[in-house]
Nucleic acid binder design. Structure first.
Lengths: 203, 203
DNA sequence: ATCTGTTTTAAACAAGTGTTTAATATTTGT
DNA sequence: ACAAATATTAAACACTTGTTTAAAACAGAT
C-alpha cells in the first residue's frame, strides 16, 4: 500500500482526469489530491499533457482488455457475445465514468487517437470479426455489417452507464434503484442483442 | 441573416461550447469566433457561466423537443417508437455532437441538472410512460421497467453518434462510409427495439 | 562525517484566465 | 441639431494556469 510518490501522483491523476476531464482540472489539483507538491508532477512526468497521455493510454487498455479476452477465447459465438456483454456490465459497474471519459476526450481531440491504433488493433487481431463473417456466410447469423454489430453491442452496454445522470432526473430515481435497473438491463441487453443477431434461434 | 451582436455571440458560443466543452474554451475564443470584443460577451451575458447556462438550456430543449413532439401525438405506440427513433437519427445526423456534449456536462457537473427539471418534466407530462404501462398491463408489450425501455431506445439512437471517433479508427472507415453505416443502423435499431418490445408481433 | 545523486520544496515566471473600467463611437428620441 | 441612451472598444485588474529554477532535505556509499 505504501506506494511511491510517482505512483501516488499517477493514481491521483487517474481519479482527477476521469472525474473532471483533461481540460477542466489543474496540475495543482492533481498534486493536492496526491498530497504532494506541484513541481513533483512535472518532475516525474515532464508535463501535464504527457501525464495525461500516459493515463489515457492505460485507461484505454483497461477499457478494451476484457473485450479482447473474450474475443480470443474459443467459445461458440453466442457465448462469446453473452459473456462479453456480461463482462462489460460488470466492468462498467466498477468504472462507470470510463466510457464518457474516453468518448469525450476522443471527441474533443480526435488526433489523439492515432497514438492508440496499436491498442485498438488488438480487437481486430483477435479474429472475432472474421469469425462473425464466416457465420454470416453460412446464414447462421443475421446479415449486417461488422461495424453495426459492434455498435449494437457497445450501445446497449455503455450508454446505460453514460446516461446515468440524465436518467436519474428524468425518471426521478435514486442511485441505488438505478443500479438495480442496470443489473436488470444486462439481461435485456443480452436477450435483445442475441435475439436480433440470431433470429433463427428458438427462445 | 444580418443578426445582432448579441445573437452573433450566442451562435458563436453554441459552436464553441459544443465543440470544446464549457471548461476547455475561453471567453476570448467565443468573442473571436463571433468577430467581436471580449468585453461584449460580458456586456450582454454578464459572465461566461451565465452564457453557458443559457446555451446549455437551449440545447437541452432541442435535445428533448423532438422526443416530446412524438410522444404527444396520438399515433399507436409502435408507430410512436418507430418515428421517435427515425426522428432521433435525423436530428443527430445534423447535430451529432449534442449527446456527448449534454452527457459530458451532466457527468462533470451533476448539480447543474436541477435547473432543467422543468424541461425534463415535459417528457413525463407527455403521458407516454402511462401509455406504455397500460399496454404492458394488457400483455401487449413486454414487461419491463419504463427506465429500461427509455434506455433501450436512447442507447441505440445516441451511442452510434457518440462513438463515431472510436468506431472510425477501430474499423478503419472514413467519415462518409460511417455516415452510411449510421443510416443503415437506423433500420436495425427500429427493428431490434420493436421486435424486442413486442415479441408477439409477426414479422 | 563527507560526498553523491536523488527527491522534495517554496518561490518565481510568463502567459492566459474571467471580469471590470473608463473612454469612445453609434444609435435613438426629440 | 443636440442630448440621452446604448453599443463597442482598448486597457487594465486580480487571479490562475503550466512550467522552471534554485535551494533544501534526504538517501546511500565510502
Amino acid at each position: 500500500m505504501n506506494q511511491s510518490a510517482e505512483e501516488k501522483i499517477k493514481h491521483a491523476a487517474l481519479r482527477v482526469f476521469i472525474q473532471k476531464g483533461s481540460a477542466n482540472c489543474t496540475s495543482r489539483e492533481i498534486a493536492r489530491e496526491a498530497g504532494m507538491n506541484v513541481a513533483l508532477v512535472n518532475y516525474y512526468f515532464r508535463s501535464k499533457s504527457k501525464l495525461f497521455a500516459l493515463i489515457f493510454e492505460s485507461v484505454m487498455q483497461d477499457f478494451l482488455k476484457s473485450m479482447v479476452q473474450v474475443f480470443s477465447s474459443d467459445l461458440p459465438i453466442r457465448e462469446k457475445i453473452r459473456i462479453l456483454i456480461e463482462r462489460e456490465f460488470e466492468f462498467l459497474g466498477q468504472h462507470p465514468e470510463i466510457p464518457n471519459f474516453v468518448l469525450n476526450e476522443l471527441a474533443r481531440n480526435p488526433e489523439a487517437i492515432d497514438g492508440f491504433i496499436p491498442v485498438l488493433n488488438m480487437v481486430n487481431e483477435s479474429g472475432v470479426f472474421d469469425e462473425a463473417r464466416k457465420l454470416q456466410e453460412r446464414g447462421d447469423m443475421r446479415q449486417m455489417d461488422i461495424v453495426q454489430i459492434t455498435l449494437l453491442i457497445m450501445s446497449n452496454c455503455q450508454y446505460p452507464f453514460m446516461a446515468q445522470p440524465l436518467m436519474k432526473v428524468i425518471h426521478g430515481v435514486s442511485n441505488e434503484t438505478y443500479k438495480e435497473h442496470l443489473t436488470a438491463h444486462k439481461t435485456h441487453a443480452v436477450n435483445m442483442v442475441l435475439g436480433y443477431l440470431f433470429p433463427n434461434d428458438k427462445l
